[in-house]
């Protein structure tokens, strides 16, 4: 559906806790990531106390990527997953680092070049809802902390399923719903009080980090996302809760 028809039909979606027109969300999300791109990694370390590295490492383990394979890292941001995949696929494989946001992609490209991860890495600026790759061309797709920012998640999941090779796997690493009510209370206090304050102090941008906290709450919980992946045509779908369900990694296989 085009922006024009969205605007005309008045279809809405959420941007954090706000309800906005569907065609507005993309530019609003872009604004958030343009604002945080330069300090994204520092903030990730601060916000998660470094635990995001453990979540990403387990996601890479679940991908079981082998040398020679083609991996697409959607919303790859500053390229930390792509750097690891580049090592795993070797010279005969390739890694496609995709992000809709130009600022994040530039930070990622510079960081990967500086770390020496070159040769089998390619940057693609594209929309997860309309992935510009041939059918059945990718062995593994990962999207880490990116799906909740996508306007139409079902459309994005269908697009991912389309380009996966049969037997290929999709891994979605995303914030989710804590399984323990006490942990949920602590997590809520942290997200809505401490996180924006940290955003203000470190990145001088409390609003963007408030959006991050709100977007996490609007994101589908573990079981809902599992159902969405099955609806998109993926099979053998499963998920693993991490850090008490604050984060979950979902895995689905292309039939």
């Amino acid at each position: 559906m085009t922006d024009k028809t969205n605007a005309e039909s008045g279809e809405t979606t959420h941007f954090g806790f706000e309800t906005v027109n569907k065609n507005q969300k993309e530019s609003l999300v872009r604004g958030v990531f343009d604002s945080v791109a330069s300090r994204y990694d520092v903030m990730n370390d601060l916000m998660s106390a470094g635990i995001h590295r453990l979540w990403k490492r387990f996601t890479i383990e679940l991908s079981a990527v082998r040398p020679g394979q083609t991996v697409l890292d959607i919303a790859g941001g500053t390229g930390d997953l792509a750097a690891k995949f580049s090592h795993l696929v070797g010279d005969d494989g390739q890694v496609l680092l995709a992000d809709i946001n130009d600022s994040m992609l530039k930070v990622g490209r510079d960081r990967l070049l500086d770390s020496g991860a070159v040769g089998n890495l390619h940057m693609v600026q594209c929309d997860a809802q309309m992935l510009p790759f041939p059918d059945a061309s990718i062995d593994c797709i990962t999207i880490a902390f990116g799906l909740r920012n996508v306007t139409d998640k079902d459309m994005a999941l269908r697009s991912m399923e389309r380009i996966l090779k049969p037997g290929g796997r999709l891994l979605v690493l995303e914030f989710s719903k804590p399984v323990n009510p006490v942990l949920e209370k602590i997590y809520d206090t942290y997200s809505f009080r401490i996180l924006p304050m940290m955003g203000q102090l470190i990145a001088n941008d409390a609003d963007s980090y408030r959006y991050l906290a709100e977007s996490i709450r609007k994101h589908p919980d573990q079981e809902t996302l599992l159902g969405m992946m099955e609806d998109a045509g993926l099979v053998n779908c499963e998920y693993h809760n991490m850090t008490g369900g604050i984060v979950a990694v979902h895995r689905g296989i292309k039939a």
């Binding site: 635990i51 490492r57 387990f58």
Partner: peptide, 11 residues
Amino acid sequence: HDPAVITAVLM
């Protein structure tokens, strides 16, 4: 077990 905990120990 929580995969994040096991991953931390293994790392």
